[in-house]
Every structure is written in structure tokens, then in C-alpha cells.
């Protein structure tokens, strides 16, 4: 596959054109990555902050409020969990009804019985991946 990077003509909008005969998982992931935003607006003590998406470990919904977990800090979001999931897309997968996890921040997984998995994140935290969402995780890795 050739990759061509060229400067746009003056006045021409920046664009990415993908010429493929068959859409593969790798290409789909690359497109998803490009479409995903680079950052998310979060709040800490009512102060708005811009958090890079690649710093997000997971997002959890508690009492209909969304909490965004970075490596050591926790922030609030004014969006609902499903809205954040739609915005982030790409590497963010639903782990349970309350949690959306950044797959790139998962260090390892282990069976938890009953079809569920424990996911250990890169900061040492553990979350549960519910049975109904395990298939999406396997699909993400082409299994």
C-alpha cells in the first residue's frame, strides 16, 4: 500500500482520501482514529479543562453523571455516557452499562467467571468487562 502525503492547493480544504478495494479492520481503525476528536472538555471543581483523549483511561456513569478517569485524576463531564461514547468512538469500548474504557489503556485481561473479564489498566486499576460486552472486545482484536 502506498501512502502519499502532499500539500493542498492554495484555498483547497485539507482532506484525506482513502482508495481501497476492500475495507480492512486496520484501515477502518485508522479512519476511526482520524475521525475521533483529539480532546474532550471536562470539569474539575466547575473549572473547564481540555483533556487529551489519549489521557483518558475510562469513563464511568454514576447517578447519571459521567466521570472521566485519567491516570491519577478524575474529572466530571457534562455529557451523558452514551454521548461521550459516540464522540470518542475508535479505541473506546463499552465495558459495562456504566463504563466505557480506552482499550489502549488496558494492560491485561483475566477471566472473572460467568463470561466476564477483569481488565487491569496501565495505572493498576481494575474494572470488570461484562459478559455482553466481551464479544465487542474480542472483535476489536479480530478474535
Amino acid at each position: 500500500m502506498r501512502i502519499i502525503i502532499q500539500d493542498p492547493e492554495p484555498g483547497e480544504e485539507e482532506s484525506i482520501i482513502v482508495n481501497v478495494k476492500t475495507m480492512t479492520d486496520k484501515i477502518a481503525r485508522a479512519i476511526n482514529l482520524i475521525k475521533s476528536p483529539d480532546d474532550l472538555t471536562v470539569y474539575e471543581n466547575d473549572q473547564a479543562l481540555i483533556l487529551p483523549v489519549n489521557a483518558i483511561f475510562y469513563v464511568e456513569s454514576v447517578d447519571q453523571k459521567a466521570f472521566v478517569y485519567a491516570e491519577k485524576a478524575v474529572y466530571r463531564s457534562r455529557l451523558k455516557l452514551y454521548e461521550i461514547e459516540d464522540i470518542l468512538g475508535g479505541d473506546f469500548l463499552r465495558a459495562s452499562k456504566q463504563i466505557v474504557v480506552n482499550v489502549r489503556k488496558i494492560q491485561s485481561v483475566a477471566p472473572a467467571g460467568g463470561g466476564r473479564f477483569f481488565a487491569t489498566l496501565r495505572n493498576g486499576e481494575k474494572i470488570i468487562i461484562s459478559r455482553q460486552f466481551v464479544s465487542a472486545l474480542k472483535e476489536r482484536f479480530g478474535l
Binding site: 489502549r104 488496558i106 491485561s108 485481561v109 477471566p111 466481551v134 474480542k138 482484536f141 478474535l143
Partner: peptide, 21 residues
């Protein structure tokens, strides 16, 4: 048997995660 198949799946996922990292 269920635990065995889950363990196998976890091993495959962990290999993919290692490649990703």
C-alpha cells in the same frame, strides 16, 4: 470448560494488547 475457553480468549487478547503497547 467455560473457564478454560475464557482463559484461552484472555491469553489471545493479552497477546494483542502486548502488540498494541
Amino acid at each position: 470448560y467455560g473457564y478454560y475457553t475464557e482463559k484461552r480468549a484472555a491469553i489471545e487478547i493479552n497477546k494483542k494488547l502486548a502488540e498494541l503497547h
